[in-house]
């Protein structure tokens, strides 16, 4: 494991050193291309004055709320669609269409409906999450092997028992995959919302990024981008990593 860390670390060091050297050689003092040391300087400064931590917390709070509402709605709608062909026919096309709509397209509508407030940001995040989760849940439940259902029926399972003991556990790997995708969509939507919806009730990472551009502080722009990548990566590892490992271990999925 540790030997496998050598290549990425060496490459990262080389990249940063090359970046630093070329900016110093050809674009010294450019307002458009910051050096890694300048970015690190901003990072340190923002960390010390608490602004970075606060913005990250504001953003994570919005992300959790948006994801919970979006994924909850998606689970419910996906379950309904899997259960009833009529519901599936009625709203399936709508979900498919709305899923293809980039979530930033919801921003103008959200601002007009909710004003420049938390509600607008929540709305955009939820809209970006709900459809993909719904479609993933529907798909996973519909692709449960009929053999499991038949076997359970012969043992007397039906109705809610069949749902809770067979359909939901059998489709869990697909549902977790859908949640992971939903989380990624929520993250993207939230960043779009924070950059475009300027509000006073909380200063998030997106707003910080936006302000970096206004102030022409490129080290802040690139620094926030790096933090956004880091938060996304850590959340993915911490939230979904353990669940996926547990599924692999207990069910022997993927090379078990």
């Amino acid at each position: 494991m540790s030997r496998r860390l050598v290549a990425p670390l060496a490459f990262a060091a080389l990249l940063l050193a090359g970046w630093e050297a070329s900016v110093r050689a050809w674009l010294p003092g450019s307002p458009f291309v910051p050096t890694p040391t300048a970015i690190l300087g901003w990072f340190w400064e923002a960390l010390l004055d608490g602004s970075l931590l606060e913005a990250t917390l504001v953003t994570l709070r919005r992300l959790s709320l948006g994801f919970l509402v979006g994924a909850g709605l998606g689970l419910l709608l996906g379950g309904l669609c899997a259960r009833s062909r009529t519901v599936r026919d009625a709203i399936g096309w709508l979900a498919l269409g709305l899923q293809t709509l980039p979530s930033v397209c919801w921003v103008p509508l959200a601002i007009l409906w909710f004003g420049q407030r938390e509600g607008a940001i929540l709305f955009v995040t939820v809209m970006g999450t709900v459809w993909s989760v719904m479609l993933a849940v529907q798909e996973s439940v519909l692709s449960v092997p009929p053999l499991y259902v038949r076997a359970a029926q012969t043992m007397g399972s039906r109705g809610w028992h069949l749902w809770s003991r067979i359909l939901i556990p059998a489709s869990l790997p697909g549902i977790v995959g859908g949640m992971k995708q939903g989380w990624a969509f929520a993250w993207r939507s939230l960043m779009a919302a924070e950059i475009f919806v300027v509000i006073l009730s909380g200063y998030g990472l997106g707003t910080m990024l936006h302000d970096g551009r206004e102030l022409l502080r490129m080290e802040q722009v690139v620094g926030v981008m790096a933090v956004v990548i880091l938060v996304g990566l850590l959340a993915d590892l911490a939230l979904f990593g353990p669940v996926e490992r547990w599924l692999r271990r207990t069910r022997g999925l993927g090379g078990g």
Binding site: L147, Y148, R150, A151, I166, P169, A170, L172, T250, R251, G252
Partner: peptide, 10 residues
Amino acid sequence: MFQQDALFPW
């Protein structure tokens, strides 16, 4: 008893 065992993997 089915052709495939139909055991529940979870």
